[in-house]
Design a protein around this nucleic acid. Structure first.
Lengths: 336, 336
DNA sequence: CTGTTAGCGCTTTCAA
DNA sequence: TTGAAAGCGCTAACAG
């Protein structure tokens, strides 16, 4: 379809050198006499030649492209990762093939992206199915998980220690004398997810000699703002005086909902959120929150991937399997 | 790098047919005897064969990939477009190469993405430089602009009539008896941008017999939340009793700022925002806003692009140059 | 420092 | 309905 008229061959002919020499010039190979290089450069300029990355990819078996699998691009949590990934990728001259992998489409998406011969993969999201694992292994494509973890522990990942983070945040609530803290999230975090969000909650309970009360574990339909209403009411109906909420939109929604119903935050109910996206600052009162370094997680994941993709034998480099970045807890006005 | 072991040739040999036949099967060509097709399919299954999209792209000169140039992926305004684009692209089995084109990098990004032989381009953003135009034309790559417009009117675009939208929103304020309405935005919208945001403001002034007062045109550093502080103070210092603000984060920021300073919204100052992202609902009071169908703009842009890329001679299809989608004005609590 | 020569894995005429 | 063969535009030994 593209009428890429001028090829490396045209340049070679016009410059009266071989294709190989043009290729060397284009690729910055040093074994070219300066005068030859100049001559070729001039012709490239004159002919307005642009290398065809597809041909290059086929011939060299490297596409300088990485695939990014992202569950929801309009979710600030994920798009912040993506920004970090993109910045580092640009730095290393990799392009990004990005695919939104909503509900259950991840397998198709991964297969497709792999058929495009990406040099590597950054995988964001929750689920890592066997099928996906199989595809990745079959093609021997380097992969790094960001903001999640490999249950089998084989794939390198970058994330924070959510278990400690949640435990710390919830303990802080208990330490303030709050008796009952609810745990609110979308379904995927109401089980022992690998990053231990729910486990952190249980840990905090345990360390304060409290039993897990299922009436305080509230499940929202998903993590978006509008899913907060129902669960917000459940929170009001419960005996909780505080809530640890996974997902900033959900937390903002719950906070707004309970206030609309006449309760005061944090006087009547304290709220802690989990991701410190700009939403936690926009909503009033501003939310106390766990603050994972989202951009950095993406950036580190991409940096690790470049190493994995590098020519130098990876064996030499020490690549941690679990890269745990530090988090902060930012105390704002939604807690006492 | 990828050890894509099994090729079309392997399948051909194992199935005892020619590569051409395998190719036909893989591509759903109908001119294959059913029994042959079965046989080939079985071998494909058995060998776990996956077509190499790069080779395919080189041979067929179609990559079934489209490039999306996006100024800031963490901006809900743009990521909402992206979601629409992605959904339609997936529907037509196109992959997306997405590139964040922050300040001034768009030319490099476009050149790079074009070298990857994308079949088409969706361009979001503000600036369309001559260099970019040149690259796109040189490669004869179909392009559709989303949420912006081609100053020269050559490239098809999808957007709303921001001029009317702003004029309507501001007029509504005047009609309520408000004397002075400020116009607040990042620098790029303080000139007569092609979509006419600023023009809409001027139009509203004119239709209400008011003069443009530069003291009411307030420029924020950018459109993000944190840029609101300075301009928020300027708003307070001005005589305005209302503000039309371009960008939801900025609007939320200004609203919060003036309230933090003791003013009441909308009693002391009315606020209208421009994009109706979830932020306008999260912030309190909820913002009255122009509501462009962001997702649909992306989706329509992508749909048009598929037509432009289609094999059937485009001449036959009527493709509008300017595709103007309807907007709404949603009245919430930040105006009277 | 430069050129020759095979391909990379697939599509696509053209014949049969 | 099928196969043979010629590339797509480039890289990568290998030779010189």
């Amino acid at each position: 379809m593209n009428k890429q008229t001028v090829t490396i061959y045209d340049v070679a002919r016009e410059a009266e050198v071989s294709m190989a020499t043009v290729s060397r010039v284009v690729n910055g190979n040093t074994n070219v006499k300066p005068s030859t290089r100049e001559k070729v450069m001039k012709v490239i300029e004159k002919l307005d030649y642009r290398p065809n990355a597809v041909a290059r990819g086929l011939a060299s078996r490297r596409t300088t492209t990485v695939g990014v699998i992202i569950p929801d691009i309009t979710n600030l949590y994920f798009s912040s990762f993506a920004l970090g990934i993109d910045d580092i990728a640009a730095m290393y001259d990799y392009s990004i093939i990005m695919a939104n992998a909503d509900q259950g489409r991840e397998e198709k998406v991964v297969t497709d992206i792999l058929s495009r011969q990406v040099d590597g993969l950054v995988y964001l999201g929750h689920t890592m199915t066997d099928k996906i694992r199989h595809e990745v292994e079959r093609t021997r494509t380097p992969i790094v998980l960001a903001g999640m973890i490999d249950p089998e522990g084989k794939m390198p990942s970058v994330h924070i220690d959510y278990e400690s983070a949640v435990a710390e945040a919830v303990s802080r609530l208990f330490d303030q004398g709050i008796e009952d803290v609810a745990f609110i999230s979308a379904p995927e975090y109401q089980v022992d997810d690998e990053l231990g969000r729910f486990n952190g909650y249980k840990k905090a309970l345990a360390s304060h000699n409290k039993d897990l009360d299922s009436a305080l574990c509230l499940t929202a339909e998903n993590s978006r703002y509008r899913a907060a209403e129902e669960v917000g009411q459940e929170l009001i109906d419960s005996k909780a005086q505080a809530a640890m909420i996974i997902g900033d939109e959900l937390a903002a929604g719950v906070s707004n909902y309970v206030q609309d119903k006449g309760l005061k935050v944090p006087e009547d109910i304290s709220i802690v959120s989990s991701n410190n996206s700009i939403i936690t600052e926009i909503v009033r009162p501003q939310l106390t929150t766990i603050a994972p370094p989202l951009y950095d997680i993406g950036a580190v994941a991409m940096r690790i991937l470049t190493k994995l993709m590098g020519d130098k034998s990876v064996e030499e480099e020490v690549i941690e399997n679990k890269n745990i970045l530090p988090y902060k807890i930012i105390v704002r006005d939604s807690t006492k």
